[in-house]
C-alpha cells in the first residue's frame, strides 16, 4: 500500500466536487442501511419491543384492565419469598436437565443407527420425525389418554399381563407426574436431536473412518476419537436449542397437568401464565418470565464459549 501511495504523483489527488446528496446516493454503506431497515423493523416490532415491554411490566403492578405504576423490585421481592416460585424453578431445572440429557443420549444413539446402511432407510428416517411434526397439543392429548387414571392403555396392558393389580396414578402422584411429563417431552424432542445429529454425521468423510480402521481403531475408538470430536460443534448447537426449548416449554405441561398435582409439575412458564393471565396479575407474571432470562443466557454462554469455537475449525482452507 505504501509503495502505491508514494509512487502516485501529487497532482493526481482526486477532489470530490459532488453534492452531499449525490455522494450519499452512491455510498454503499448508506445503501446497505436502507436494505437492512425492513428486517430491523420486524425484529424491533416483534422481538425487541415485546421483550422490553415484558421486562418493564415486571417492574409495575399492572393487572388486566388496569394500567400499573412503577413499583421497582417489589414483584421480585415477593417472588423471592414465594415457595411456589422456587418450586417452579426447581421443577424447570429438573425437567430441563433430565429431559435434555436423555434426549441427547437417545438422539445420538438413533442418529448412529440411522447413519448405517439399512433397508428402507429413507422411510425409517421419515418415521423418526413423526413425533416432531405432530402438533404439540395433539400429542399432549394422546399422552393425556395414555396417562389417564382409569383408561390408561399402559395400566390396562400391565394388568392384563398380570404384572400389576391396580391402575397406575400417572398424573396424580407428584413424582409420577414429573416423570410422565418428562417422558412426553423426551418423546417429542428426540427426533429433532436425532435428525440434526444425523445430518452432522453425514458430513464426516467415510475415508476418515477407513483411515482410522487401518490405524487400528476399534468401533468404540472410532466413535471416541473421530465421530464424537468431529460432531461437537453440531452437538453444541443442537443441545443449546434443545435446552432452550425445554426450559421454556409450556404447551405440553399445560395440556397434560396444568402444573398439578399440587404444583409438582409447575414450570416457570406455566406459573407465569397462571399468575399473569389467569389470575390477572400481569406484573407478577412478567417478573416470573423475566427471571427465566438469566438461565437462558447462561445456557447460551456455556455453549458459545465452551463448545462451539474449536481451534481446529479456524484458519483458512488452502485447497
Amino acid at each position: 500500500m505504501t509503495t502505491m501511495q508514494t509512487s502516485m504523483p501529487a497532482q493526481a489527488v482526486y477532489k470530490d466536487t459532488r453534492s452531499l446528496w449525490e455522494r450519499l446516493r452512491t455510498n454503499r454503506n448508506w445503501l446497505a442501511l436502507w436494505f437492512m431497515l425492513p428486517t430491523a423493523a420486524f425484529l424491533i416490532l416483534f422481538l425487541a419491543y415485546p421483550l422490553g415491554l415484558g421486562v418493564w411490566m415486571s417492574f409495575t403492578d399492572e393487572r388486566i384492565g388496569r394500567t400499573g405504576i412503577f413499583i421497582g423490585l417489589e414483584n421480585y421481592e415477593w417472588l423471592w419469598s414465594d415457595s411456589i416460585f422456587w418450586l417452579s424453578v426447581f421443577n424447570t431445572l429438573l425437567y430441563t436437565i433430565i429431559a435434555s440429557a436423555i434426549k441427547f443420549a437417545v438422539g445420538l444413539y438413533l442418529a448412529l443407527l440411522l447413519n448405517r446402511h439399512m433397508p428402507f432407510k429413507a422411510i425409517i428416517r421419515a418415521i423418526v420425525l413423526v413425533p416432531f411434526i405432530v402438533p404439540t397439543v395433539l400429542s399432549a392429548i394422546a399422552f393425556w389418554w395414555i396417562y389417564d387414571a382409569q383408561f390408561s392403555i399402559v395400566s390396562w396392558s400391565l394388568i392384563k399381563l398380570g404384572l400389576i393389580d391396580h391402575n397406575i396414578n400417572f398424573l396424580g402422584d407428584p413424582n409420577m407426574a414429573r416423570a410422565s411429563v418428562i417422558f412426553a417431552n423426551i418423546w417429542r424432542g428426540v427426533p429433532f436431536v436425532a435428525i440434526t445429529l444425523l445430518a452432522g454425521l453425514q458430513t464426516v468423510s467415510p475415508s476418515l473412518y477407513e483411515a482410522a480402521t487401518l490405524d487400528g481403531a476399534t468401533d468404540w475408538q472410532r466413535f471416541r476419537y473421530i465421530t464424537y470430536p468431529l460432531l461437537t460443534p453440531i452437538i453444541a448447537v443442537v443441545m443449546t436449542f434443545s435446552v432452550l426449548f425445554t426450559f421454556t416449554d409450556f404447551q405440553l405441561v399445560w395440556a397434560l397437568t396444568r402444573g398439578g398435582p399440587v404444583n409438582a409439575t409447575h414450570l416457570m412458564a406455566t406459573l407465569s401464565y397462571q399468575r399473569g393471565i389467569l389470575s390477572g396479575r400481569l406484573g407478577e407474571g412478567a417478573a416470573i418470565a423475566t427471571a427465566m432470562i438469566p438461565f437462558l443466557l447462561a445456557a447460551i454462554a456455556i455453549s458459545w464459549f465452551g463448545m462451539q469455537r474449536r481451534k481446529w475449525q479456524q484458519g483458512s482452507d488452502n485447497d
Binding site: S205, S207, A212, Y225, W312
Partner: peptide
C-alpha cells in the same frame, strides 16, 4: 499403511497427533 487420495487427515488433530494416532491406539 495407506495414503488416501483426499489424505483423510483427522481435522481435529494436530500434525503430530495425526501421525501418532496409530501408535496411540
Amino acid at each position: 499403511a495407506m495414503v488416501f487420495q483426499n489424505y483423510a487427515l483427522y481435522p481435529h488433530m494436530t500434525v503430530a497427533q495425526n501421525m501418532g494416532f496409530s501408535l496411540k491406539l
